[in-house]
Simulated assay, not measured.
Amino acid sequence: MGALDGTKAIVTGSSRGIGAEVARLLAEDGAAVVVNYRQKAPRANRVVAGIEAAGGQALAVGADLTAPEGTKALVDAAVENFGGLNLLVLNASGGMEAGLGDDYALKLNRDAQVGMLNAAIEVMPAGSRVVFITSHQAHFINSVETMDAYEPVARSKRAGEDALRELIPALTERGISFVVVSGDMIEGTVTATLLDRAAPGAIEARRQEAGRLYSVEEFAAEIFKMVSADVPTGHTEYVGGAEHFTR
């Protein structure tokens, strides 16, 4: 029995990296978790296998969040396999990948986030929680410049956060809380790798500026804490390096 026993969760973008680690932590504490992937089924299945080997409960579901049928598939999977949904972790993000179109960042980081939340709240009961994951570079983009290669992604993620925050009154009416977790660049993530490829030395420069960057495991642990933290709806939890953006 864990503290999250009875929790039924969806973690978007959880076949690797931060999302996979969050899914593992949730399951370790008793939650049943829908592990979402877009294309890499074997990778998601390995996440599920690891959770099950440790005694947890999880299910891998392939779904493109930019399509309405994708968000519906995730919600249906949670309801049909776990009996409901009371935790949604909006972790999926992107926009630096090649070949997906100039508007992909906005489609994924804003439109898909809103679409996923709107699909989820139809089945989420009072007492549920929604956690949105972002970066300091995106959260503060309207007041602090970021790296050129990351700016389109940052602006699309800020647009996503703003659009989700507009839904807080509707969430509050349903008794659902909404929390944002904002972190600095995270060591070892796809975004950090692509950014360093586009602007060699960018991650090292940010590391020097911040003092240190969090690892995937460290950042996931902070996200995990906010799943049940006693904070008001709309709260933003800053993880590492925020002083640079607020001074």
Rank of each mutant, 00 (worst) to 15 (best):
M1L: 13
A3Y: 15
L4M: 14
L4P: 01
T7K: 06
V11F: 02
G13P: 01
G13M: 02
S15W: 05
G17T: 05
A20W: 01
A23N: 07
A23H: 02
R24A: 12
L25P: 01
L25G: 03
L25W: 02
L26Q: 05
L26G: 05
E28V: 10
G30S: 10
V35P: 04
K40E: 14
A44I: 10
N45D: 15
N45V: 15
R46H: 13
V47Q: 10
V48S: 06
G50T: 15
A54H: 11
G56S: 10
G56V: 07
A58M: 08
G62W: 09
G62P: 09
T66P: 00
A67I: 06
A67G: 08
P68F: 03
G70A: 03
G70W: 00
K72C: 07
L74T: 01
V75L: 05
A78N: 03
V79M: 05
G84A: 07
G84W: 02
L85F: 06
L87N: 06
L88H: 05
V89G: 04
V89I: 14
N91A: 06
G94I: 01
G95K: 00
M96Q: 14
A98K: 14
G99L: 10
D103N: 11
K107M: 06
V114I: 04
A119Q: 01
I121V: 12
I121N: 04
E122P: 03
E122S: 08
V123Q: 04
M124D: 02
S128K: 03
V130F: 07
V130T: 10
T134Q: 01
A138T: 03
H139V: 01
I141F: 01
I141R: 00
N142A: 15
N142L: 13
E145S: 15
M147S: 13
M147E: 12
D148E: 15
D148I: 11
Y150N: 12
E151G: 11
R155Y: 12
G160E: 04
G160R: 01
G160D: 05
D162I: 15
A163I: 09
L164M: 13
R165V: 11
R165F: 13
E166G: 15
T172K: 11
E173Q: 12
G175K: 14
S177H: 10
V179H: 00
V180I: 13
T189L: 04
A192H: 00
A198L: 11
P200A: 15
P200N: 09
G201N: 11
I203D: 02
A205L: 12
R206G: 06
R206H: 15
R207C: 09
E209K: 14
G211A: 14
R212A: 13
S215M: 09
V216W: 03
E218S: 12
F219C: 01
K225Q: 13
K225C: 07
V227A: 10
V227C: 12
A229V: 09
A229I: 08
V231Y: 10
P232M: 08
T233M: 10
G234H: 09
A242Q: 07
E243F: 08
T246E: 15
R247V: 15
